[in-house]
């Protein structure tokens, strides 16, 4: 068995929306593999169907055609972690209540799930904020809760939909380092969607560049720069230029 076996195989995925008589083809023959425990970045221009793709992977939406094969069989709901761009925290739940949600839904008893959730709250650096409500937190802290909530499900696959897209630049850099530290600590297979080239190179083991709509995989880049990466490193910049010149403009 190879070390990097395919965790997810996506084959010929198609998705078209019908809106007011117009049809919008979003995905056309999208195919790629996600390897076990890698940090895969899907990089694409705005509106190119990245979110739709993740929603299909998470079974929130159904594809019109194609198939997705998971190593070890189709995970059930709750066995894939999802981090939303707009956090999607439950506003009536405290930080603890949000993070322990997946365990609660699974029927884990209170003491066990509190202890498990605490570990992830500590992991994202929110110790002391267990009883805070989401509205009392800053954007960066909200997304830390989002990440802790996704990880607490103990899912082996993490889907992240532009998780730092709503944050200001400074917080964004912080959170990028944060997510790398977390991935180092808790090995998971991560599929990370972004429209930001620097973020993609800074984070990814591998980058799949998507074309604009109807989107498919345009190019694959293996990022073999050592971590921590530097935005000013010549190799970083060279890769950035290669990717940018190959990116479709979003009109």
């Amino acid at each position: 068995m190879a070390v990097l076996e395919n965790k997810i195989s996506v084959r010929n995925l198609c998705k078209t929306y019908e809106m007011k008589g117009n049809s919008h083809e979003v995905l056309r023959n999208m195919s790629f593999d996600v390897r076990e425990n890698e940090f895969l970045v899907l990089l694409g221009p705005g509106q190119c169907g990245k979110t739709v793709l993740l929603n299909i992977l998470a079974e929130l939406e159904q594809p019109d055609g194609g198939e997705i094969v998971f190593a070890g069989g189709r995970p059930r709901m709750g066995e894939i972690g999802f981090v939303f761009q707009k956090y999607a925290l439950f506003p009536w739940k405290t930080v603890m209540g949000n993070v322990e949600m997946s365990l609660k839904l699974r029927g884990v008893d209170k003491e066990t799930r509190r202890a498990a959730a605490q570990e992830y709250i500590d992991m994202v650096g929110l110790s002391g904020f267990e009883k805070a409500l989401p509205k009392q937190l800053s954007g960066g802290m909200k997304q830390r809760v989002g990440i802790a909530r996704a990880y607490a499900s103990e899912a082996s696959i993490m889907l992240m939909d532009e998780p730092f897209g709503a944050l200001d630049a400074q917080t964004r850099y912080q959170m990028e380092d944060e997510i790398l530290r977390i991935c180092e600590k808790k090995k998971r297979t991560v599929v990370f969607v972004t429209n930001n080239v620097e973020e993609a190179i800074y984070l990814g083991d591998r980058i799949l560049l998507l074309s604009s709509r109807p989107s498919s995989v345009k190019e694959e880049y293996v990022v073999d720069l050592p971590r921590p990466r530097k935005h000013t490193d010549p190799a970083f910049l060279a890769l950035r230029n290669r990717i940018v010149s190959n990116t479709d403009l979003n009109i």
Partner: peptide, 19 residues
């Protein structure tokens, strides 16, 4: 979005209603 969040966290239909 909150319903989606509930679904990916593993909520069944009844849990989606109550939780």
């Amino acid at each position: 979005l909150l319903l989606d969040a509930g679904k990916v966290l593993g909520a069944g239909r009844r849990q989606l209603l109550w939780e």
